[in-house]
Design a protein around this nucleic acid. Structure first.
Length: 858
RNA sequence: GCCCGAGUGGCGGAACGGUAGACGCAGGGGAUUCAAAAUCCUCCGCCCUAACGGGUGUGUGAGUUCGAAUCUCACCUCGGGCACCA
């Protein structure tokens, strides 16, 4: 053994060595190379929480496997990394522990990079970006101004959660049981003027384009379709009775105009203009509306709350019968943002309306019944699929027996002909509110001037950077409220239009804005424009995007909108309006949650490493164990991968997170198994050493081993292409076992172990380099071309066919691969086990599936 | 509540509608060792059987099919999202 090699597998020695070699060779620097096809692989960038967790390792290893594999396939690869660095946790940390969000964030970024580097990811770190850096968000501000000019942004009033004690706006997750998480004060709904992106203008386009996203998971496409929520319905106005002046008409929208003759009440949202008007003049209404506003702002809270209404005393006339009046209720489950914020209720065919009708003793006339069952509705509403034919008792358009779909269309046509409203297509998708009343975000670059109103900042004044100090001291975050609001100087500026003293907007942008275009910025991360045409043109689109399913709707939909808006304002080419060619949604890494309750009755979460035998290590206090949930910093159910890397090396961590679980599925983290993975890699290393030391004369023959090798090359290639990393690893285990037991010639084994190293390289690149070098591979395995399977080596002469009797496997036969159906049937029926089962009788039927199976029906 | 997923040995999981349990972990038995660790060999869904073998089995219940873990319907449990967590 020469001094160059160590027969033992020592990841601590080889991993830094090969990482240095890659860096030296500049393997991962992305270059615009027109002579080669490009491949852009991107994992969703992390929030710099300060610690990487297993979910990150899994996510980035997947991306790395793809990036390394594509590089070996000859692509010019872009594989960048950055930080989704704005957001609440930094501000919360500053409030709770002091310090500054910027310091906290930049420090976390350094810590996390130090934790990621040992993984040996093929990332081009020269393109690193952090969204909290002025060089990033300044470009974002420039785009905001372009969007504003293009009419893609506007202001309107919207509701927020207001904490009256902390004097601050709360995020939904900060509202617990209707109370502020820190103050415990009853949260109020408050209306503020806020900025919005006109994403709903793109509802139809975003919906239709989903069909073109062929390489996206079907479930994500479905979720997005449902989220956009196209519906066809009738919009019409009731005329009102006893309504205040200016409310002579009540505009409603319904997707079931065919049930118009089953209406028994009208209902409006507590945020409807009519409700707001009544609120000002009627204390009882004001009381009820105030109660509704305590429910919270999420759809979930509204849906789960007890359905309540208040009769306003106002009535509406039925459009088909002036004598027929329906009461108007204010109801807590009507959303102002959907339709017109007013509906009519048909209790017989909507469960929610029926519950409401029972509660307020309203009638519930049946509009239609099932063809084979005309029992009237009592406690359960009759809501058949719209495609099912029903018999109309109170129909007024179309046939007596027709489907809901047909009836809706007939009802719309009928109503239009009578001048009662018109058919409309509506979408559930609402405009995207981007204003946040917080410090740690991208400032919205506008100025409020007393004479000119809202004025966009001049581009040459960008970036409008966040102030770090206040009165010469770092900003104090222990004071409640937004530091930008109370800042002594930052707000003061000159109006870009008239030059008079004016005030800056103090709202910052939703962090979803930051993450809606970072993929484009990676193509030219240092440019002094948001993007550069040549770079965007070469690198876009992202060929493979990888991230958590939890982003299936918002982030991905916002990004799709943003790409369109960027195209409209000249920041992206037309081909990039769908920026992600292929999407892979990995499952989450989950873990039990450990919690205790403190003296104030508040839940306190604990890290897994602080728990032993269901008790807190420090105090021995028993903890409550919540089964399994997405690992999240706020719940503290996170496991630190750094320990595994330290103990066993990066290759073990990488191999381990890729093995066993299918990538799209959630995995419950357990620490068992990492050691076994390490042993396997050590076995591969030892195998390589043994083969390297084999004399050339050892062993003989090579056909079986070469066949197995070509089959493995073919399997691994297909499995990496198909994101079946767990199966690829299982196949690599099999091939390792085959090679270990092989008695083939030394030359054949030496060739096989080099190919094994190449196939393992995307998963365990350091180990692979070690073996490659030991066996005299040329250059780096990272730079080597992917092996190709010889098709001739993949076919075999004979096949083993299982024989079933009545669908149950009884035996098997070996036949020539090209045997005819008749031949196979003859051999099968001659088989002893089959003859025994037949007991002299002739089979009822024999099914032969060539190359697959034989089923004999007795 | 609404939308979207997922349920297979003790565990993680394989399985174009065609041999259920590949591969790995854990476990049992054995070899090696003074002994242990490491390593190697071997067994391993469940029930009955000394064995041969038989029965049974993919959350539950129905259905389609020569044949269902896979397709259909209903239900149960768990997970994700619900527009200010990222």
């Amino acid at each position: 053994m020469s001094g160059q090699h160590d027969a033992r597998y020592l990841p601590q020695a080889i991993e830094p060595k090969w990482q240095a070699a890659w860096k030296e060779a500049g393997c991962f620097t992305a270059r615009r190379d027109p002579s080669r096809p490009k491949y852009y692989v991107l994992e969703m960038f992390p929030y710099p929480s300060g610690r990487i967790h297993m979910g990150h390792v899994r996510n980035y290893t997947m991306g790395d496997v793809v990036a390394r594999y594509k590089k070996a396939q000859g692509f010019s690869v872009l594989h960048p990394m950055g930080w989704d660095a704005f957001g609440m946790p930094a501000e919360n940390a500053a409030m709770q522990e002091g310090g500054h969000p910027a310091d906290w964030t930049y420090n976390n970024i350094e810590v996390m990079k130090d934790q990621m580097r040992p993984l040996g990811l093929s990332i081009d770190w020269s393109r690193e970006i952090a969204t909290c850096h002025p060089s990033y968000y300044g470009q974002q501000q420039a785009m905001f101004l372009d969007f504003l000019e293009a009419g893609l942004v506007y202001r309107k009033n919207a509701v927020v959660n207001w904490d009256p004690v902390d004097m601050t706006v709360l995020a939904n997750e900060q509202v617990i049981d209707g109370k502020g998480w820190r103050s415990n004060a009853e949260v109020e709904r408050r209306e503020l003027t806020q900025w919005f992106f006109r994403i709903s203008d793109y509802s139809q386009e975003l919906l239709e384009a989903i069909d073109g996203l062929e390489h996206w998971p079907e479930k994500v496409r479905l979720m997005q379709k449902n989220w956009i929520g196209q519906s066809r319905g009738l919009q019409f106005a009731f005329s009102t009775v006893d309504a205040p002046e200016g409310f002579e008409r009540l505009e409603v929208y319904t997707t079931r105009p065919d049930t118009l003759l089953g209406a028994s009440f009208a209902a409006i949202s507590p945020d409807h203009p009519l409700a707001k008007h009544l609120e000002r003049h009627d204390p009882a209404v004001a009381g009820f509306v105030a109660e509704c506003r305590r429910i919270g702002t999420t759809e979930e809270a509204l849906e789960k709350a007890e359905k309540k209404g208040m009769n306003t005393g106002i009535r509406v006339r039925h459009p088909f019968d002036n004598e027929w009046e329906l009461p108007v209720y204010i109801a807590n489950f009507i959303l102002m943002d959907y339709g017109t914020g007013a509906i009519f209720g048909c209790p017989a065919h909507d469960q929610r309306d029926l519950d409401f009708a029972h509660k307020y003793e309203l009638p519930h006339p049946d509009v239609f019944v099932a063809l084979d069952d005309d029992t009237p509705v009592s406690v359960t509403a009759f809501v058949p699929p719209k495609t099912e034919k029903v018999r109309y008792l109170r129909g007024f358009a179309g046939e007596v027996e027709q489907t809901g779909e047909q009836a809706v269309e007939a009802a719309i046509a009928f109503c239009e002909s009578k001048g009662v409203g018109h058919g409309v297509t509506k979408y559930r998708l609402r405009d995207w509110g981007l204003s946040r009343q917080r410090y740690w975000g991208c400032p919205i670059p506008v100025v409020h001037c007393q004479t000119c109103g809202v004025v966009p900042e001049k581009k040459e004044n960008l970036p409008i950077a966040l102030p770090y100090d206040e009165d010469g001291q770092p900003i104090d975050f222990s004071i409640p409220g937004n530091p930008l609001d109370r800042h002594p100087t930052w707000r003061n500026c000159a109006c870009p239009k008239c030059g008079a003293p004016a005030l800056r907007e103090t709202d910052t942008m939703d962090t979803f804005v930051d993450s809606s275009w970072y993929f484009a910025r990676f193509t030219a991360p240092r440019a002094d424009t948001p993007t550069v045409a040549e770079d965007a043109d070469y690198w876009m689109n992202v060929d493979q995007y990888i991230g958590g399913v939890e982003h299936a709707i918002l982030h991905l939909l916002y990004s799709r909108f943003f790409a369109r808006a960027m195209n409209k304002t000249g920041h992206l080419p037309a081909k990039a309006i769908e920026p992600f060619n292929a999407l892979f949604t990995q499952g989450m890494v989950t873990h039990e949650i450990y919690q205790t309750v403190n003296a104030q009755g508040r839940v306190v979460f604990h890290l897994p490493e602080d728990i032993e035998d269901g008790k807190l290590k420090a105090t021995g206090e028993a903890v409550q164990v919540i089964p399994s949930a997405k690992m999240s910093k706020s719940k503290k159910n996170v496991v630190d991968p750094v320990n595994i890397i330290d103990a066993f090396g990066a290759d073990t961590a990488r191999w381990f997170v890729m093995s066993d679980s299918p990538p799209e599925r959630d995995v419950e983290w357990t620490s068992a198994g990492a050691e076994a993975t390490h042993k396997h890699l050590a076995r591969v290393w030892a195998l390589s050493e043994r083969i390297a030391d084999m004399p050339d004369s050892a062993g003989q023959g090579d056909d079986d081993l070469q066949r197995a090798m070509h089959r493995t090359v073919d399997d691994i290639t297909r499995m990496i292409e198909g994101f079946a990393f767990n199966k690829a690893i299982a196949k690599l285990y099999e091939f390792t076992n085959t090679l270990t037991k092989s008695t083939a010639s030394a030359a054949s084994q030496k060739h096989a172990v080099k190919v094994l190293a190449q196939l393992m390289a995307p998963m365990t690149p350091h180990l692979a380099e070690g073996i490659w070098a030991r066996h005299g591979g040329e250059g780096l395995v990272t730079e080597a071309a992917w092996p190709k399977a010889d098709p001739a080596m993949l076919v075999s002469d004979t096949v083993i066919l299982p024989i079933q009797i009545n669908g149950k496997r009884k035996t098997e036969i070996t036949v020539a691969a090209d045997a005819s159906k008749e031949e196979v049937e003859r051999i099968a029926l001659a088989d002893d086990a089959v003859r025994k089962a037949l007991a002299g009788a002739s089979p009822k039927k024999v099914i032969v599936v060539p190359g697959r199976i034989v089923n004999v029906v007795v």
